[in-house]
Design a binder for these strands. Structure first.
Lengths: 244, 244
DNA sequence: TAGTGGTCTAGACCACGCC
DNA sequence: GCGTGGTCTAGACCACTAA
């Protein structure tokens, strides 16, 4: 049995267990392919009752950090088309149906980060980033012009990829190829008018209104790992938000 | 002791208890001012263990339907400035700070519902609605032009109110005066260009881009009770969305 | 001081996945 | 058949609120 460290704080036991497991998950101690130790094992290790471990794991499951399968075990929650589609993609067709967009990469380059990049990604000035530009279609209509910047340091070799090698669901790539798991994203949405690029790639009229979505994605320890600016033609789309 | 009815479905006990309590809350059986029966009492009434009731109540608390206070009891979760501000108001200043807007009511009228009203509010064609128009300021700047439609049938006398009697936080009014508790809201956000009204009331240039937020608010049994269209100048604002 | 919810334990039995 | 998580019980003790 292992004591819960003083860094666990003096709160309830189930919270200390939760924090400890969180640290271990953030360290990448549990690959997404195989299960965490069972409740029994963890309970023995921490010297608490199984119900206390259960409560900690249930909280982590509610926060989408782990996923539990009866009969199989508890796993670190991985990205896949399903999760990306329903959790991180909030644009819906006018009829309310959710569909996954397709993507065409326009460019993939390595460059020095702009001031905005450095601010959002918490980088040193002039630090290198990899930039991906792409157009996304929804229901066979050009709908989104996207500019993505990620720190070069976190994603070695991403800048060397071929345009055709960039998959549609980027968070799967971050996870499977670089071990970076996006857990949370914060979006700020404003209205703008179409500029030259929007005219070219989205087929909008100059001055047409469009939705600007600025997203910063973070790992579960709060490190920002991606700045994504999406410019959307909302003639046939809407951004969807559910306030419960 | 009271049996859980067959309408409770055959699922886990804690879910049946949850559903039963949900029905009773939706019926308005528990005024927001005084507590639900204690866990002990509910356990005795349903013939289950206290832990089972606790689990049901914890779920309801997580869904913001009830709020629990150690030493006092469990209450139906009511609206107030705090909740409205942080839960249902998603516009933030450019600096990221959340501030509550002020409001000036332009008009309060009773009229026949439009087709859009009838669709969103699930009303018969031509059914009466009360319409409130107002301008909202954020940081002493005109920022939002809002048109609100609610079914006249659900809010008797609302149409007779004086403009000055309409409070800033409407959901508090709905709750305290009409017993309608807004539990959930669904928003669809698009970009548009400023029309004559926006020019007049928001001081925008004709053709300037603005954010259109269309919100349908529901009670906890899913009845839509309000259609609200907000047109926002996002020069100094952004709509904020947190994807966890 | 009595009553409420909050934490924690210990153990039973069930449902599911895999070998 | 075994090990996993899911449900349910029973009871102890603590922290907080109100009278």
């Amino acid at each position: 049995m292992e004591r819960l460290g003083p860094q666990s704080g003096g709160g309830p036991l189930y919270r200390q267990v939760r924090e400890q497991l969180l640290r271990e998950i953030a360290q990448g101690r549990y690959p997404v392919t195989d299960p965490l130790p069972s409740e029994q094992k963890l309970a023995a290790r921490f010297g608490v009752a199984q119900g206390t471990v259960r409560r900690a794991l249930d909280e982590l499951a509610r926060e989408n950090l782990v996923i539990r399968h009866q009969g199989r075990g508890t796993f670190v929650h991985a990205h896949g088309p399903e999760r990306d589609r329903f959790h991180f993609f909030h644009l819906v067709a006018a009829d309310g149906e959710r569909r996954l967009p397709t993507s065409r990469v326009l460019s993939l380059t390595r460059r020095r980060g702009s001031q905005a990049d450095a601010l959002a990604l918490n980088l040193a000035p002039q630090a290198r980033v990899v930039e991906i530009k792409r157009v996304r279609d929804l229901m066979a209509r050009r709908a989104i012009l996207e500019t993505i910047a990620v720190p070069d340091a976190l994603f070695p070799d991403l800048g060397n990829l071929n345009k055709a090698q960039v998959p549609n669901t980027l968070y799967e790539l971050y996870q499977d190829r670089f071990g970076v798991i996006v857990h949370r994203a914060v979006e700020k949405i404003t209205a703008e008018t179409a500029g030259p690029e929007d005219v070219t790639y989205l087929g909008l009229d100059r001055g047409a209104p469009l939705l600007r979505i600025e997203r910063v994605a973070q790992t579960l320890d709060g490190t920002p790992v991606e700045l994504r600016v999406s410019r959307c033609d909302t003639t046939h789309l809407a951004y969807f938000s559910d306030l419960v």
